[in-house]
């Protein structure tokens, strides 16, 4: 099949000069209800930090069995500045026969007959550059050159003076 599938969310954090930001805290928030899922920590939010390339990834998402639009809120913070975007994605159910194991199988229980596939959607970012989430694992046809969603952080001002 020729679908792009992924269970990972990856974003890139840049400063105002479009340089990657290392060590930014990036939080991913899956919807509280409806199409969504849980991260490896068992909740619908996960925080991680960006690497030297300014990238942060949320891996191993377990999607629920509700199909439909799935906006993922992503918040990044560094040096007191915070920015966020919303990544609009869809949670799509598909049969295991067409997708194969390793994409979404193994969820157990009522999930055994279906496999969760995350179809990449458009990015609706607040001031963010348009881009696509790269499929990290299990995506056999993900274009390697697709740009990451970008969260831009603008540095703040540090004041020096007497105590307030």
């Amino acid at each position: 099949m020729n679908e792009r599938v992924t269970r990972d969310l990856i974003v890139m954090v840049e400063d105002q000069n479009h340089k990657p930001v290392t060590g930014a805290a990036v939080s991913f928030f899956l919807p509280n209800e409806g199409p969504g899922g849980t991260f490896t920590n068992g909740t619908n939010s996960l925080t991680t930090t960006t690497n030297e390339q300014g990238r942060a990834a949320a891996r191993g998402i377990q999607f629920n069995n509700q199909a439909g639009p799935m906006p993922v809120r992503v918040s990044a913070s560094y040096a007191g500045r915070t920015a966020s975007i919303v990544i609009n994605q869809s949670n799509v159910l598909a049969g295991t026969s067409s997708v194969g194991r390793g994409i979404g199988g193994g969820a157990g229980g009522g999930m055994s007959k279906t496999t969760k596939i995350l179809i990449i959607g458009a990015i609706a970012g607040a001031g963010a550059a348009a881009g696509l989430v790269l499929g990290g694992r299990g995506g056999s046809s993900t274009p390697a050159a697709a740009p990451l969603p970008t969260v831009t952080l603008t540095p703040g001002v540090v004041t020096v003076g007497g105590p307030q």
Binding site: G23, A24, A25, S27, F29, S45, T47, S75, S77, Y78, A79, G80, R81, T82, G156, V158
Partner: peptide, 18 residues
């Protein structure tokens, strides 16, 4: 050198320290 602030809405901020 990292100070994280954990907020009420599960938000996490990196505070500006040097």
């Amino acid at each position: 050198q990292q100070v994280y602030a954990f907020g009420p809405d599960s938000s996490v901020k990196v505070l500006p320290v040097s």
